[in-house]
């Protein structure tokens, strides 16, 4: 935190700023100490906190599932294997009900997205100040723990999916088929081809945007509400009224967290399902 008793403005700024590493305008490399400094670094900088938490949660996913996969037997499953198989079964059912082509990448892709996004979202349920304060005491100026509130994280996943959409579109329909789909729909009349092309291009580009921005928006808003509740009930003295305030704030945080559990699960699921849907469309020769 910037000072002992930060103003509302400072508190909000602090919580919404990533720990960014990059080149300062004066040529030296280092961490940005404010949002403005991070802005000045331009494209070639890295949000270290987002990457850190993304990789940590990703490794938790990989570790948990691969330790279950290593011990996987057709015999009686243990506790972890049961849990992991439940998720696998769920994703497999979802994939098979949407995606009717032969592609062994789709289900693992959906699984990775679902579990990883869920774990990244789950960091939102850690009380908003715990990890940032711990980081501050360790000398780290900024720390955003929810990787999915960073549009870089959500958009990079969405764009990766977008690349896969285009790859499979071209692979299944050929480059001609893919382009024909862009200008041949929805009006199969030659003089309307330019209009078709604009419409279809918007549809195509809307796919990664809808994927990435939906997740980012939901998580950013959820995180913002946690921060605002924390702000609303913050106290700077000690007394009976303050105790009541803290208790009220705790209750509010709990209620919002309980509701937010649904949001984080749903957003992870929506991201995974939309990925499957888009890739299924990419495989279909007769798209609309």
């Amino acid at each position: 935190m910037a000072s002992e008793n930060p103003t509302t403005q400072e508190y909000l700024q602090h919580h919404l700023t990533n720990l960014t590493y990059g080149q300062h305008p004066d040529g030296s490399w280092g961490f940005a100490h404010s949002a403005a400094e991070a802005q000045a670094m331009g494209f070639w900088s890295v949000n270290v906190d987002s990457m850190f938490w993304a990789i940590v949660t990703g490794l938790i996913f990989v570790w948990m599932f691969s330790s279950a996969a290593k011990k996987a037997t057709a015999g009686v499953p243990g506790g972890l294997q049961n849990f992991v198989e439940m998720i696998i079964d769920f994703i497999d059912d979802t994939t098979q009900s949407i995606f009717h082509h032969k592609n062994d990448l789709i289900a693992p892709l959906a699984l990775t997205i679902f579990v990883w996004v869920f774990l990244m979202n789950l960091m939102d349920l850690v009380p908003v100040d715990w990890i940032p304060m711990l980081a501050t005491s360790l000398g780290i100026s900024h720390m955003k723990v929810v990787a999915t509130t960073d549009p870089n994280i959500t958009m990079s996943m969405a764009l990766s999916v977008f690349v896969l959409i285009i790859y499979y579109s071209i692979k299944c329909k050929g480059i001609g088929g893919f382009l024909k789909e862009l200008y041949g729909h929805p009006f199969p009349v030659v003089f309307l081809y330019p209009i078709n092309f604009v419409l279809e291009l918007v549809t195509l580009i809307a796919k990664p945007l809808s994927l990435g921005l939906r997740l980012f928006g939901n998580m950013y808003a959820g995180e913002m509400i946690f921060i605002l509740i924390a702000l609303m009930f913050s106290v700077h003295a000690f007394g009976f009224g303050e105790v009541l305030m803290v208790a009220g704030g705790g209750l509010m945080q709990f209620v919002w967290a309980a509701f937010h559990v649904i949001v984080i699960t749903l957003q992870a699921f929506v991201f995974a399902v939309l990925t499957i849907v888009y890739l299924a469309q990419a495989h279909e020769a007769e798209a609309h």
Partner: peptide, 12 residues
């Protein structure tokens, strides 16, 4: 909140 090289690393 600007797009940065984080995008590329996260994609990888």
């Amino acid at each position: 909140m600007n797009l940065t090289a984080t995008l590329l690393i996260q994609s990888v």
